[in-house]
């Protein structure tokens, strides 16, 4: 008896439509965030994360409506990331029905923003997203740096130090993505995940690289993550969330079934 490790499917949303093609059987509209969220809720998703990849800020308002619609029908926690830069952005998403917002570039531009947001809205709703890449040479002790712009632009910031700092600034959770692994289906960067988890006191969501159900379990057991986030293995119906949970349970992980 105890706290379950969470599985969080992540949906990329562009101008109100889910992109990167979700391929459920019998889905009427593969781009409809409400229908997809409902599916994931039925499968037993513990939370859902929406990443707003809309390029133009004029179209950002669309995301607010997406969150409103989903939150009216799906009664599990919702996180929204992408384009959260001001306290007003945070407020609008929370008022629309999001439970948490994920802050990435805006935290790097001005770390105090995280402190202000946590003080205003509570730590529980502030997730700091960290995109990290290994920068050590073979044989050196491991070191990771924060990258922005989809992993193209280095910031010179040490990932472990940054995580510790965001923890101290009042982040309630860290969404950690390995840019080395993202999209590779080779599994999480377990060393990175574990280093961040052990350096902080808040929950860590591991992300980037999931290709098999064992990768999910490894993220928890070896990476010491509190939750695992994945996109393609669920979207393409390779596995359902329930299958993933059964697999994790078989490896001794506590899950919500």
């Amino acid at each position: 008896m105890g706290l379950a490790k969470r599985i969080i499917p992540c949906l990329d949303v562009d101008r109100g439509r889910v992109v990167k093609g979700v391929k459920f059987v019998e889905i009427r509209d593969a781009g409809d965030p409400v229908e997809i969220a409902r599916r994931y809720d039925k499968q037993g998703a513990d939370e859902i994360t929406f990443l707003d990849i809309t390029a133009s800020s004029d179209d950002r308002e669309t995301m607010v409506h997406v969150v409103e619609q989903v939150a009216s029908e799906v009664f599990i926690p919702l996180t929204v990331g992408g384009g959260i830069r001001t306290l007003d952005d945070v407020r609008r998403m929370l008022n629309a029905g999001a439970d948490k917002v994920s802050i990435n570039t805006a935290a790097i531009a001005r770390p105090e923003f995280v402190r202000e947001a946590a003080e205003r809205f509570g730590n529980q709703c502030i997730v700091v997203a960290i995109d990290a890449k290994a920068v050590h040479q073979p044989g050196e002790s491991p070191r990771w740096e924060i990258f922005t712009h989809g992993g193209r632009r280095p910031t010179g910031i040490d990932a472990v130090e940054w995580a510790r700092r965001m923890n101290a600034y009042g982040a309630g959770e860290i969404l950690l993505t390995s840019m080395d692994r993202d999209g590779t289906k080779r599994g999480f960067d377990l060393e990175l995940t574990r280093a961040i988890s052990e350096a902080t006191t808040i929950p860590i969501i591991a992300s980037g690289g999931v290709g098999t159900l064992d990768h999910l379990a490894d993220g928890i057991l070896l990476g010491k993550a509190d939750a695992v986030l994945a996109a393609s293995i669920f979207h393409f119906a390779e596995y359902t969330i329930e299958q993933a949970k059964r697999h994790m349970q078989a490896r001794g992980i506590e899950v919500r079934l």
Binding site: R6, D46, Q124, I202, P203, D226, A227
Partner: peptide, 17 residues
């Protein structure tokens, strides 16, 4: 953790019984 002695994260966040 009462069994493993491992440090638990705060906030207590997620699905518990």
């Amino acid at each position: 953790d009462p069994v493993t002695g491992e440090r638990l994260k705060v906030p207590h966040m997620g699905w518990n019984q």
